[in-house]
Design a protein around this nucleic acid. Structure first.
Length: 275
DNA sequence: AGCCAGGGACTCC
DNA sequence: GGAGTCCATGGC
């Protein structure tokens, strides 16, 4: 094992509980004295102190970028409050320590296909089992996210055993499609073209594509609309059951900052206003 | 028992 | 290109 290093960060800069629990990532685990964060084949441990966090990892630069620590969120929040009104101001106050993670692309794609019409608890359990059954071992308890080659060996029945249900056939097809694609080449596409390309893949529709764009490609000009965002929209911004219409209205409202607004609203709605 | 969960594919018109 | 319907699975 490589030598472990660490860095500290002030609690004013980020709240790891909020950032990890706001729904953008499934591969983390809270222990009594630390949080373990997994991304692809990398891992970090977060220890909380009175005024700062200590992050221990063998790839400091990766996780400084992963946690988006160089981005100025105070400026983003000020602009968002002007555009989003009272409800967004409340959501930002509630989730003030959130940052949008820059995650491993393959892991985001596969994870959010699992997420379709599913709940976070089940999704998380399935994905940890996917890691442990098919990924390279990191230690006694956790494994790396499977590589594309490792994913290619999983058949439909094995996906069902992971709890993927009717998404199993979609996943098998998706992985063969990904094997014929060069993911890195997609980054040069603009957001709209990339979105169409993603939607053409098996198991990926409008909402999952938007999550992949936001969390895997760092495209902030998208607004994933799920059941929770539908509720927020109909409570505070308008009346519609049409996801595409809701999405257009919200992107129109928040523009280049849509992804940030979406995350604050999602976390606020899911945490506070559970009925 | 029925509805919900970070929806998508398929089938009709 | 929009509206309906079906799709596994576990929690409530």
């Amino acid at each position: 094992m490589k030598r472990c290093n660490s860095f500290n960060i002030n609690k004013k800069e980020i709240d790891f509980v909020q950032t990890l629990m706001c729904g953008q990532i499934f591969s983390y685990k809270q222990f009594e004295n630390k949080i373990l964060v997994l991304s692809g084949d990398k891992q970090a441990e977060v220890f909380e102190f009175e005024n700062f966090y200590k992050i221990t990892t063998d790839d400091i630069e990766y996780f400084k970028n992963f946690f988006d620590l160089k981005n100025d969120y105070e400026k983003i929040k000020q602009k968002l409050i002007l555009q989003g009104g009272e409800i967004l101001a409340k959501a930002i106050e509630f989730g003030r320590g959130i940052r949008i993670l820059k995650q491993d692309l393959l892991e985001v794609i596969v994870s959010f296909v699992f997420s379709a019409n599913n709940n976070i608890k089940r999704i998380t359990a399935s994905l940890f089992e996917l890691r442990n059954k098919y990924g390279t071992k990191l230690n006694d308890n956790f494994s790396a996210f499977p590589t594309l080659k490792q994913l290619g060996k999983i058949n439909e029945i094995e996906f069902k055993k992971l709890g993927a249900g009717y998404r199993s056939a979609q996943l098998v097809k998706l992985i063969t499609q990904l094997e014929e694609l060069e993911l890195k080449n997609l980054e040069k596409l603009d957001t709209e073209e990339l979105r169409k390309k993603l939607i053409s893949l098996s198991g990926i529709g409008p909402k999952v594509a938007d999550c992949i764009l936001l969390f895997g490609f760092a495209r902030i000009d998208v607004f994933p609309v799920d059941t929770w965002i539908k509720k927020v929209f109909n409570l505070y911004y308008g009346k519609s059951d049409n996801i595409n219409q809701i999405r257009k209205i919200l992107i129109d409202k928040f523009g280049e900052l849509s992804g940030y607004a979406q995350q604050y609203l999602f976390y606020y709605q899911r945490s506070c206003l559970k009925v």
